[in-house]
Computed example of a mutant assay.
Amino acid sequence: MVAFRALGWLLLALAVAVVVHDLLTWWSEGSYHFSTLGSLWAHLDPGSLGSAQTSARRHLPGSLWNWTVRPFLALPTLPAFLVLGFFLLWLGNRDGDRPDPSFLGGSRPSRKRRSRGLS
């Protein structure tokens, strides 16, 4: 569950980075447009996007690329990262899978004190 929470926080941090990038682009160009997952991938590593497209078209049916991967790459980056990040945080914070709090160094249950003297 810790891995889900860490990945969720990482995606939320990436969403903030995308907002900053989009706002700086808007400031410099004068027009605002949402970054898409495909444009982010092409900006980070253009060679791998081209090779992924080539190998997918070579080894998989062409309709698979056109009907599944291309619409996924056209999604806006900010809502995709926010939704996936919050989902992973929710998945990592579910109460049903948590062990007993005293398990492996967790908090101890409070002990009852014995009364000394007259009361």
Rank of each mutant, 00 (worst) to 15 (best):
V69C: 10
S107Q: 07
S63C: 04
T54K: 06
R98L: 13
G85F: 03
T77R: 10
F72Y: 09
S119H: 13
S28K: 07
A80Y: 03
S31H: 15
S115T: 14
Q53E: 15
G106A: 04
G117S: 03
Y32P: 05
P71L: 00
F87Q: 08
L91R: 15
L12N: 05
M1V: 12
L60Q: 11
L118N: 10
F87H: 09
R57L: 15
L104G: 00
S55C: 00
Q53W: 10
A74H: 13
T36A: 06
F34V: 09
W90Y: 11
R94C: 09
R70H: 07
P46Y: 02
P101H: 06
F81P: 00
L82G: 02
A3D: 11
G38F: 00
L89G: 06
S110P: 12
L118S: 12
S55W: 15
G50M: 08
W65C: 00
L12C: 01
S51P: 00
A80N: 00
R108L: 15
W26P: 04
L14E: 02
W67V: 12
L49R: 07
V20L: 15
Q53Y: 11
L14T: 02
L40K: 03
T77G: 15
D95T: 09
R70I: 06
M1W: 14
H21S: 07
D95A: 10
G38P: 00
S35V: 01
L23M: 11
T36C: 03
S39Y: 13
R108F: 14
T77V: 15
H59S: 07
V20N: 04
G38M: 03
S102T: 10
A56P: 00
F87T: 10
V83D: 05
L88T: 02
S28R: 13
A56G: 07
S63H: 06
G47C: 04
M1Y: 12
L75I: 10
R116A: 15
D22T: 12
G50T: 07
D45V: 01
V2Y: 07
D100S: 09
L78R: 07
L24P: 00
H21Y: 11
G105V: 01
G96L: 05
G50C: 05
G85Q: 05
P61I: 13
N93S: 08
R113K: 09
L60R: 08
T68F: 14
S35Y: 01
R5W: 03
L78W: 11
L40V: 11
D45R: 04
G50F: 05
R108N: 12
R114K: 03
S39E: 15
S39R: 14
L84K: 01
S55I: 12
S31C: 10
R98N: 01
Y32S: 08
H43A: 15
L82F: 02
W65S: 01
G47A: 12
L73K: 05
S55M: 15
L118K: 14
L89H: 06
A17L: 13
F34S: 12
R58A: 12
F103I: 06
L23G: 01
L84W: 06
D22R: 06
L118H: 13
S35N: 05
L64I: 12
R58M: 10
W9Y: 11
H33P: 01
L64F: 15
S28D: 09
P71W: 02
S119N: 08
L10Q: 08
F103L: 11
R116S: 14
R98T: 06
A56Y: 02
G117F: 04
L11H: 02
R116N: 11
L73P: 02
R98V: 08
D45H: 07
F87G: 08
